[in-house]
Design a protein around this nucleic acid. Structure first.
Lengths: 240, 240
DNA sequence: CGTTACGTTGATAGGAATCAATGAGGGTGG
DNA sequence: CCACCCTCATTGATTCCTATCAACGTAACG
């Protein structure tokens, strides 16, 4: 880690009330005493590098986590099917619900880039902050809604699935106030295909066609610029 | 409603501690005082008939619900895509998480048969029972896991999707102690196709082929008998 | 500079969608 | 009670989209 990076990292180890995520994370809706209590239960920021695991499938549940910066993928490994990528998490999103019901993580979380993550230990929270459970329940609810709509993407053809994915990422960045018309795809064509139930070849063909149609521009194959978000949305509204 | 049915209905209006669902529902993990508090927050059992809505998409969130008997489907209506069936709920499962994060139900719930449903009013629960939030969070977590695995079914071919659906229903009945090798499909071929991202014709062809192969037996087109669950599981493990 | 993994592009094959026709069941009204 | 209608299910023929197979290009890395 470079000196500059180290400095940046330390800046990120702040308390919940000073955290740049602000209302995007769990504390939203809590009053000051509750946030202070939350602070005590939130461990130091973890630093993950690309490829590092936050936790692995079939290990015992320890905590929920809040993604502070970077991005990670959530994957399951079923011996019959192989590795399935279920989605990606962006800053401000809560990770770990997959382990809550059975006390064993049902998925693995792997960093797609350098990422900072806060640990939310439910045991130390105890019953101290009832409101925080309400907040977590809301996050879980949002996760359910997102997973469900992501599942219905499978009804669309290949092109619309790719477009839906790009728009989904853009909207999630936008909802959190990030620049949303240009971002890195930290997933390879193969991983995108895995996520969208398509082959790498089909992903490539459709991304290239979107580029020929001027909807997007590619930089170095991994960075995508959305030139015409409204056009992309229309594409999805009126299937060919 | 017949006299017998009315009598049955009244029998079902019992308190949480006497409910036949027992540990399958929310109270699991709560102590007696908490269950008593829960009882106060649980409204009378609602009776729904086939086609009735428990709630409709885009209406404001009121409560979570516990399905006591019967079955319902959860659907979303996107003007671009039309109606999408996201899944079915069986007895002991919690309904309504889709409305929790935004305070507006994101889906509709429609009864597939005569069904009894308990209402769980979160407002009256307040902060009285911190543990209940823990329980609800676990239910939400389970829902996330289920939705995710259901989504990965879309990677399979048509036959395996049908098999996965049948096995999923069977396992959920079994987990709750119900007879699980014979049950009614309250979904039409078209609805099954909608749920599994296939056409009614494809559903029909695959169901009939499973019947020809003796894996299942159909009664009146809607009732299915699983003759060889182990065989069905093997089918899914080793795709052709 | 070779190696390796990833991405692109083309040709072909396969599986599900679509189109079309018939069959079966359930309810309604004559 | 039966004929009719309407919806759903089934089955076959054909089409279309994506997977598969194959070859080549490209970039990062030691």
């Amino acid at each position: 880690m470079s000196t500059a990076a180290r400095k940046l990292f330390h800046q990120l180890s702040v308390s919940c009330k000073d955290c740049s995520l602000g209302s995007l994370c769990v504390p939203h809706g809590l009053d000051q005493p509750d946030i202070d209590k939350l602070d005590e239960s939130v461990g130091h920021t973890k630093l993950l590098h690309s490829g590092d695991y936050l936790y692995r499938q079939n290990t015992s549940f320890k905590s929920l986590f809040a993604l502070k910066s970077g991005s990670v993928k959530i994957v399951t490994n079923d011996p019959n099917v192989g590795e399935s990528i279920l989605g990606v998490y962006l800053p401000g999103e809560i990770i770990g619900f997959d382990g809550l019901s059975s006390e064993v993580y049902q998925c693995s979380i792997q960093a797609l880039e350098t990422s900072n993550i806060c640990e939310i230990n439910l045991d130390t929270l105890q019953a101290d902050i009832p409101n925080i459970y309400k907040q977590l329940l809301k996050h879980a609810s949002k996760a359910i809604n997102h997973t469900q709509t992501a599942g219905s993407v499978n009804k669309a053809n290949a092109k619309n699935r790719v477009v839906s994915f790009l728009l989904d990422i853009a909207e999630r960045y936008q909802a959190r106030g990030y620049f949303h018309t240009e971002f890195d795809l930290y997933l390879s064509r193969g991983e995108l295909g895995n996520l969208l139930n398509l082959t790498p070849e089909t992903i490539s063909r459709n991304i290239r066609q979107l580029e020929r149609e001027k909807y997007i521009t590619l930089k170095n194959n991994r960075r995508v610029v959305l030139n015409n978000i409204e056009g992309l949305k229309k594409l999805n509204c009126s299937p060919p």
